[in-house]
Amino acid sequence: MLRSRFNMPSHEELVKRMDAIPDHILRECPICHSTFFSLRAGTSKTCPNCGYGFRITAKRRAKITFDSFEEIDKQMTVPEQYKDEKYLAKVKKAKKVTGINESVLTGIGTLDKQQVGVGIMDPFFVMGSLGSATGEKITRMFEEATRKKLPVIMFTASGGARMQEGIHSLMQMAKVSGAVEAHSQAGLFYAVVLCDPTTGGVTASFAMQGDVILAEPHALVGFAGRRVIEQTIMQKPPKDFQSAETVMEHGFIDAIVPRKEMKQTLKQLISLHTKEQGYGR
């Protein structure tokens, strides 16, 4: 996995901090380092100072983003061929923390009564890594959306390919890409929301294939991790080289949208792409 948050607490530590802690606890923003009472981050869990959206579970994101959400392929999980005990223990723990069985939550959501195919990656499920079942769930969701002629909204948050599943993890990048293209060929709309962190194989596939690509403020977006770059070619990257803001300057993001405005922006985009009335077809 390509782990590369600057000064970021460990995954386990973050999980602990997230939902379990009471609201009166002080917390620190990993981006601007301001401290504030947890309560002030509100239901959207954003830094009141710089707008950074703290990592949240897929289930919470579904709740704060969509008017309604119906999960599909709920039981799908790591295939039985993987028997490594350390890996399975990690997966078991992840299921408990996130309340889902793989690193992506998929389903059909609604925004202003319009149905949309939805995929939300969970950064607390083995770093949101792309396992075989993750890819399968996303692929099926795209296929379902294509059949039903629905737009798709995909929230990405991932450390990249899942090393424990080897080459099969890599193949998910191609499999999902095929489903994205079939959806696109059907003339349907696909919006991506890049969340913190979106890296590696996810960036190198469906995260960068959207018709419109949004990002949350200060989200880390990149391909190779900082340490990989430092250790492979001995180059020291600038501090913000993989912040969403930098990536946008380089041409890969349409807009950076604070989490509190995300629902409204998605409604606007979905409405613009599902108007009954138009010029011609």
């Binding site: 419109v212 946008m248 300057e249 380089h250 041409g251 890969f252 993001i253 349409d254 807009a255 922006t265 606007q268 985009l269 613009l272 792409h273 108007k275 009335q277 138009g278 010029y279």
Partner: peptide, 27 residues
């Protein structure tokens, strides 16, 4: 809705582009 970036290397502010409704129809 303003769109940004060439998806290759930059976002040139000399160009503005996006999607909007003209008499309620998308253009």
């Amino acid at each position: 809705f303003e769109q940004h970036g060439d998806r290759l290397e930059a976002d040139d502010p000399a160009i503005i582009g996006g999607i909007g409704l003209l008499n309620d129809k998308p253009i």
